[in-house]
Amino acid sequence: MKASLAAGLAGLLFAVGLGLGGMTDPAKVVGFLDVAGAWDPSLAFVMAGALGSHALLRRLILRRRRPVLAPAFPTAGTTRVDARLVAGAALFGVGWGLAGYCPGPALVVLPVGGATVLLFVVGMVVGMGAFRWWESRLTARTQAQPG
């Protein structure tokens, strides 16, 4: 219960940051990506603020033995740069450029944004489901072929 409350407050603050930073305005996002047109650099400042503050705070936080409400900090995952990483990031970028929404801002806009963002989020969840299905089929096929 406490953990859910903490996570909910973190989500709320995250949303306010996205909104003040301009990430919830798709025209601003597309303006940032439009390097050949009237480039709007303001989102680079959002990124710098987020990156700088989180890099600093996480160093302080990781001096603790464990999180306040959880047993352990996340362990470092894979460091491999592979085709999946590159292809996934590439597809994500195309969708981001088309709509001007990445997952966080889309969920912030969802309760107040109307049909466009609703359909974007539906597409996003279906896309995530499709990935699960594709990956489970891939795993099943690999296991069916020994050696």
Binding site: A3, A6, A7, L9, A10, G11, L13, F14, V16, G17, L18, G19, L20, G21, G22, M23, F45, V46, M47, A48, G49, A50, L51, G52, S53, H54, A55, L57, R58, I61, R64, R66, P67, V68, L69, A70, P71, A72, F73, P74
Partner: peptide, 17 residues
């Protein structure tokens, strides 16, 4: 706005890991 995003991400790490 960016700093708030960074602080929010830090809170999730601090409390929820």
């Amino acid at each position: 706005g960016g700093v708030l995003i960074g602080v929010a991400a830090s809170l999730l790490l601090l409390f929820n890991g």
